[in-house]
Design a protein around this nucleic acid. Structure first.
Lengths: 235, 235
DNA sequence: TCTTGCTGACCGTACGAGCGGTCAGTTAAG
DNA sequence: CTTAACTGACCGCTCGTACGGTCAGCAAGA
């Protein structure tokens, strides 16, 4: 590598371990001392390389987004029709949980309100930019009458949700492969859960169901409905 | 109220403010001192009432789950068919972001790995129990041939994802009402994004798209593909 | 009625641990 | 000699928690 550093440095290793710690402890509970200890380094070394803790997370974010955008470019270059592109984005997002675990977790956990000013803006912009990619795919699909949705923006958020929330439950050692999961998710999203035969008027059913729950009592905080002994007061 | 406390206490207020702080700062960045100050109380008072910080979050969790289960019971009691019930659960989950904001955010942010032993187990069990409710709805729908999915468990997680991830983007003052959003999400999930007319073989398209991305280069951490100047090194 | 004793909400201070960050100095490669 | 990775002692600060103490309300005995 003729590019950058004349002498080998622990930069990359620090970034890697830091991302892992943030991924499974959270940013606030990640200690630079712990990261340094795991690498047999001094805390001062980390500061020497990155300046401060926040800069570390910033680099993790930048690298993560960089990878996601490259991925999106690949999808755009290799797949033409909107349906395929949408499926590919779903798969890419899910696969990141397996292939880019630490950074994905770190970035998904620490989405909001951790920094003032600069990084918040940066992260928000990158997220908007990424969202726009999927929105454009959906819009193109609607124009070509290959997809149907009244609100591509909202639908994109729906797709992101089902994929990104996987950080909550996905485990690489689980029974299903990422390809299985992506296939199922994509199928559900594209074909829907209601079989073609059953032709009830969905919109009426939806409106009625929402209206029913809208009147349910005591869903906000303040009153625990049953005060059920779900957990002993003194464990 | 002849029931519990003979003298007025700040318990509920403490719980309320604490949940709000956790909701928009995170658990680790929530300081008992700040909470106390906001209520013009002493830090010692909080400890007097709850014992320690973790117990506070535990109470927030218990109350939150209690409300969600009561809600699910309501849905079960007032709606018969699986499709309506599924829609209702989607709406309930989304509405909680508006009507039970602080607790929802607090519980969704601090899902994992924050406590050892007792609370982790408790939270995990409640989540499994809640998931099972939606899985049962899906299974019933499949049996009655009103719904179609090869994997109700996975599909339930998909539904949870799209709803719960709303904590990332939903703002009460936004242009769309929760009812609008729930209606759109439910419609997309039930009817699918591909219009009835377009009858390409979805499964082939899905498999092909996934296979294409599977071979994309450098999606894991380690190499930033372009090193694009996304953010200046010194902001 | 006065008094005594108890309960529980609440205060204020103090402490110890752990954190991010600083800095003068050491080491070794080019 | 210059440069940069790296060390290790150190500082200041914040936070959770412990603890002794105050005071209002209430119940019962005299």
């Amino acid at each position: 590598m003729p590019g950058r550093s004349p002498r080998a440095s622990s930069r990359d290793a620090i970034l890697r371990v830091f991302a892992e710690h943030v991924a499974d402890r959270g940013y606030a509970d990640t200690s630079l001392g712990d990261v340094a200890a795991e690498l047999n380094l001094s805390k001062g070394t980390i500061v020497h390389h990155f300046g401060n803790k926040e800069a570390l997370l910033r680099e993790v974010h930048v690298a993560y987004f960089s990878r996601r955008f490259a991925e999106a470019d690949f999808v755009h270059a290799h797949l033409g029709d909107p349906v395929s592109r949408l499926v590919a984005m779903i798969y890419a997002l899910l696969a990141a949980h397996r292939d880019d675990r630490a950074a994905s977790l770190a970035c998904l956990r620490e989405l909001v309100r951790y920094f003032d000013g600069d990084l918040t803006d940066y992260v928000r912009k990158q997220r908007v930019r990424y969202t726009e990619i999927v929105v454009d795919i959906l819009r193109a699909g609607v124009e070509q009458e290959l997809l149907h949705t009244p609100d591509p923006q909202m639908t994109a958020l729906q797709v992101f949700g089902m994929c990104n929330y996987a950080w909550t439950w996905y485990r690489p050692e689980g029974p299903q492969t990422v390809e299985d999961i992506a296939g199922l998710f994509a199928h559900n999203v594209l074909a829907g859960l209601v079989p073609d035969g059953a032709a009830t008027d969905l919109d009426d059913v939806i409106t009625a169901a929402i209206e029913t729950v809208r009147k349910a009592p005591g869903r906000s905080a303040g009153d625990a409905p049953t005060d059920g002994d779900l957990l002993p007061t003194t464990p």
